[in-house]
Design a binder for these strands. Sequence first.
RNA 1: GCGAGGGUGGCGGAACUGGUAGACGCACUGGAUUUAGGAUCCAGCGGGAUGACCGUAGGGGUUCGAGUCCCCUCUCUCGCACCA
Length: 821
Amino acid sequence: MDQKYMPEKIEPAWQKKWEDDTLFNVTEDSTKEKFYLLEMFPYPSGKIHMGHVRNYSIGDVVARFLRMRGLNVLHPMGWDAFGMPAENAAISRGVHPAKWTKENIDAMRAQLKRMGFSYDWNREVSTCEPEYYRWEQLVFLKMFEKGLAYKKTSSVNWCASCQTVLANEQVEAGKCWRCHQEVSSRELDQWFFRITAYAEELLDFCKKLPGWPERVLTMQKNWIGKSHGVEVDFPLKGRDDAIRVFTTRQDTLFGATFMSLAPEHPLALELAAGMPQEEAVRTFIEKTRKQDKIIRSSEDLEKEGVFTGAYCRNPLTGWDMPIYIANFVLMEYGTGAVMAVPTHDQRDFEFARKYDLPLVVVIQPEDTALDAETLEAAYTEDGVLVNSGSFNGLPNRQAMEKIADFLEEKKIGNRTVQYRLRDWGISRQRYWGAPIPIIYCEDCGPVPVPEADLPVTLPLDLQLGEGGQSPLPKSADFLNVSCPRCGKPAVRETDTMDTFVESSWYYMRYASARYEKGLFDPEAVAYWLPVDQYIGGIEHAILHLLYSRFYTKVLRDLGFIAFDEPFTNLLTQGMVIKDGAKMSKSKGNVVDPNYLIEKYGADTARLFSLFAAPPERDLDWNDQGVEGSFRFLNRIWRLVTENLEVLKNGPSPVNQDTPSQALHRKTHQTIQKVTEDIKRYHFNTAISMIMELANETYAILPLREETTGAFQEAVRAMLRLLSPFVPHITDELWYQMGGTTCLINESWPAFDSSATKVEEITLVIQVNGKLRDRLSLPVDVTEQAATEAAQASEKVKRYLEGKTVRKVIYVPGKLVNIVAG
RNA sequence: GCGAGGGUGGCGGAACUGGUAGACGCACUGGAUUUAGGAUCCAGCGGGAUGACCGUAGGGGUUCGAGUCCCCUCUCUCGCACCA
């Protein structure tokens, strides 16, 4: 009696066999073409979710497919194991972060294995292990040496609920990216990575990453925010020095009527000193500095300022310009000083109206004169220069160049570029992270930990504080050391590194995960890296992907590696949606992969997540759709098990009868289509083509002597084509049919182009572009014969009645269009 | 506001360089089988007054022919947003 399809029985058995046979473990092999396929590693939260199932199913199809095509495929998995949820669990449940993390990793590893993903587990990496982060500390020291890691006091983003600092990239619309609480600002002594030193290269290589989605490159480009402009000196009245401003609108220079300084500008207080305004200026500066950073940089903040009492001179007009302190001017961008052109900048306009400052129109539309008195908003469009001395009459775009030339000639200013990108703040006032390998000595200042003393191990015997504060500053054992330079008592840095540092290089570690002599074995890295295909969520478009690109360039410049970009091709998969919303606990629309595996098996979970939508789009989860995928696998199961005797024999040659030839053709068309579709990551259409093949294979039943060969061929191809998607059921059926090798070690089926050829084609006949008939004609029909056949058609004749044929369009193999009127 | 990407049956989605719109699946309808339910199998399934018509957000254009190319409008999603 045939056995029912019971995934819960066969799947674990195959997973065990794969593991026992170390089927997925790879080594460097210079005789084979390598392919490094990587999916973003997960944070070990304890359970996989549908996003993981989808991400890793996509990756596994590609990995298994390329393996079958003969490539040496590196497909590793690991854990982004540092981070706050571990600390939160420690606080709420009293478990140590290390224990919590380890248990979660064990649970998730088991789940991933239960999904049947083809990872080389020998290369598993967990970033919270000293064997991993010690190399990150080494890189930190090298960066420190080169000035790429440095410390400065600055106003930083502070998340009160997470009790730590956030990088600019980790603040989303004023809220913490992780806990979504309001972010405020604090003055803190922080470590930074000098990512701005690579701004130009990070931007430039956007053009050199053709394998990345346009969307991601655009987001990175916007984030880096390069703008071209000029720096201009405005001489201070009564002093020898000048205020330097950055502007992208040098064409409006003649309209600059006052100056705005950031409250943090070094000259702010100095200029007001001794003036009647001094007290007002001091109060204003204090007030603004106390103000929340995010509120301060939001557009709807009322523009406010205060006059310093000082003046500078417009270098082109010679006018005296009052100098104001303005709350909307940011010290971190440009020079912290802005020349104010109220007629052509909306912010300056509002400011000028409020404080009754002069307005001068210098650009206006070609045919309309603007009146500064009655202007209701700044005119920011293009136009022609007026009130601008010798530049009058020039279109402003041209004037930009001319004025820039003029400024450079007169040595008043220089063309320059500015970036929006800021340096990456990596200090975190957290416990569960990689310690920053620095020691503070009263005499020597910050001293790097000697390389020989690495790693600086995170002590595991500490208890977390009540409010989530790091226990490191209170741990005498950790804290107290002697200065490596002078030997005097000193203390360790107690901040840990942002976890994005770990994820910036884990993909290199996989190349030689157990290597003990350095970050990685240079030969292994030279063989495997860069990653050929990276797959992950779009939410990392800026954060992780920009940091990784930066870190790669740093490692290159430190001499560790020879490539420029870490990920040659990037695929960003869409979210998993249910009932119109992203799956989330708060929405209550979460589907647990465990439940799916129990009810339908891993193969169904994989199949549905690949079939329901193309990878880049959001996937709408539908329980009935899952049933459909399960049903399909049952169909495949029965197709094989009910014809096992026939399938065990053979394969015998395909007969020449019509049904056999039709199935034979469909088999080879399917091989061709599925191969092409997997190559371009159109898994949903690949699967639907296999479904069609299954339908046609069923249609040939019941088997007769002469159709056996075609049937055997179709089934054997079908199982191999399906195996990257649903590896368990296909291996099971393959072995039942007498196979002795797992399908991942079989070769991918080749298609016979002569088999896909047809003798007859359906030619579409149109009259004036409208479909009127379909004719079955030989493939090699001549244009003349096709045209004649078309005009002979009864259906077509009716439409031609009373009309003259003016033209006939013939597209070989497709259609005949008769133009008549 | 700026930038990017989308709008195709009841639903998820197909359609390579312009050439049969709606593959495949879900849901639904009818039938077979069954004591019944489920499962399975067969058939149908864009709309419509069911032979000549209309249909890919709406409007215009190019073309023998447009979901696909061009222009305008609407709409949704995402990213950035006082960056001088």
